[in-house]
Amino acid sequence: MKKLQQLKNDSIRFQFETLRNQVNPHFLFNSFNTLIDIIEHDKEHAVEYVENLSAFFRNIVTYKDKDTIKLSEEIKIVKAFYFIQQKRFGSNLQLLVDEHSLYDDRYVVPMVLQLLLENAIKHNEISKEKNLKVKVSFSDSRIIISNNTNPKMNKDESTGTGLRNIIARYRLLTDKTVQIESSQEYFVVSLPLIIRE
């Protein structure tokens, strides 16, 4: 009984955390700043940028109360987010999604890939000298998100709540665990895929 209450609390905290990140003023104002540059220098992408930005905010509203989301939908979300970030960081930021084995009955926690990409961006240097490469790949029962690490000097905002919340969300859904592997060079998160008929 107590455990159930705990899980509920974790879930609420996750929602709170996600929402707080999404109203993150840094993200918003940096996006506006990028948009102004795109309007002036990269006109043909301006509409696409706003579409992605708006899709991103729409997703937050749509999925905030849902437990799971189709993997293919989640891939779309992370790609929209990547598009927005890629305009900021150019080729210094790369996302590779291995899509050849997308099963339609596989589900994940909503916004989870987006959150992991956002975490990678937040904690690592992204510069000409040190690119950030994030890779998403799949096995039959798992999804693996990995990135190379070049930690920033200031560890601000690093409260670890993002990851803790993801683990808590998965605990509500499945007995299979979220696995995290952190080495000097790589950071790897492996999430169980939820199968729904």
Binding site: N30, N33, T34, I38, E40, H41, R88, F89, G90
Partner: peptide, 12 residues
């Protein structure tokens, strides 16, 4: 400045 669009805009 670490973001190219931001640098470009500033220079402009």
């Amino acid at each position: 400045e670490d973001e190219e669009p931001a640098a470009r805009r500033l220079i402009k």
